[in-house]
Nucleic acid binder design. Structure first.
Lengths: 210, 210
DNA sequence: GGTTTGGCCATAACGGCGTTACACCCATAA
DNA sequence: TTATGGGTGTAACGCCGTTATGGCCAAACC
């Protein structure tokens, strides 16, 4: 029975081909080239394949998002091991920026609405919020260790997410393809200044006030 | 000679009609309904009018952007009179958010790339950066009065812009049309927490450090 | 075996998009 | 009277997402 399976991995799977073609087009040509016709041509089938396997362009983009969120979460998780919760938060912010810049088109689709008419399915939106829950959890952890003051954890988490997302999306929007190194350095400095200042401002005023 | 002018304002100006139609469609139906055909139909001319007066859809969107940046700058300027530079900065941030939420579709086109294929002309990009220069000027002012520490003014200005833009764009992206009041309140609280924390972290440690 | 079913697919079309070639009107200038 | 040229409508081109139609073919049934 195992011998009957041995060539299974080489069976051409239309669904896999289409998704791979879509990711390749997104990476190589940008989101404006992500059309059903082009994806189908690259996958070696007709446009109808996208409808058979994904229900349409929306479903295909949902699959792209699912893949993106998984890779994004992996990148953030890989940046976790730090000693202090504050160090972990800073490290994750840096990892967030690095991933966004290295996966620019994915980030644009995931967080900047780059695919014009797309509305993500409810399921996908839930997956997208997992990273936020991770962040929130670390904020609560830092608060419980009295490293961050006692403000609303959601407000603090949103502040961090908003700052990181805002800086990253401005950087992506202002970057010519393969942006200048000096510009990149400037954005990196702004990023560090902003994050350390925000964390400074959130530090618990331990037994100093009230 | 003045009597010869008296009916000039009532002359139907195709260019004005088209721009007004585009702004109305953007406001009433959202950016996905902003098509050349629809604008022309609402303006009472054929699609060719958009090409005669604006050179195409890109030119029309540029005109929309110009209008948007003007109204945006007005709203920020109207929020200026505060006593301390820090109060001014905070007041402008609040005005920024208020304008973005009250002019959601404009903000999406101006700062979130809502019109799919659009690339703003160089001239328009310069106009868009005027608001940034205003912000930077106030940062420098606050630094010269020793209210903000001596970090790179551009980095500080980018930090503020990034935070405000990030929170606002997350709020816009997550808001169902006419979003729930509770959600709005949550975002307002996050906004205030984030801004005061950032400013706290940027405060000059007056004669305390070095 | 023959027949029916149903999953998968290609062709060709529909309506909508941005854009443009072409012909037309018509006020002005010669 | 004729010529010019700016503003315009019509109709088309090549894209887009989507779908109706119908063919193929392996599995399931009589």
């Amino acid at each position: 029975m195992s011998s009957a399976k041995k060539d299974l991995p080489s069976i051409p799977d239309t669904r896999t081909d289409i998704l791979a073609a879509a990711l390749a087009i997104l990476d190589e040509e940008g989101h404006s080239s992500l059309t059903v016709r082009r994806v189908a041509a690259r996958a070696g089938c007709s446009t109808i394949g996208v409808y058979t396997w994904f229900g349409g362009k929306d479903g295909l983009v949902d699959a792209i998002l699912l893949d993106g969120f998984r890779r994004f979460a992996d990148a953030l998780a890989r940046a976790r091991p730090r000693k202090s919760p504050l160090g972990t938060l800073l490290g994750q912010a840096v990892a967030y920026r690095r991933w966004a810049l290295e996966n620019r088109t994915s980030y644009e689709v995931m967080f900047m609405g780059a695919v014009p008419g797309h509305v993500a399915s409810d399921e996908i939106q839930v997956v997208g919020l997992l990273a936020y829950d991770l962040l929130r959890g670390e904020v609560v952890g830092a608060q419980s260790r009295n490293l961050i003051d006692e403000r609303d954890a959601d407000a603090v988490a949103m502040a961090m997410w908003g700052l990181v997302h805002g800086l990253v999306s401005l950087e992506i929007a202002s970057a010519e393809p393969k942006g200048l190194a000096t510009r990149k350095l400037f954005h990196l400095r702004s990023f560090e200044v902003a994050l350390t200042a925000l964390e400074q401002g959130l530090l618990a005023k331990t037994a100093k006030h009230r």
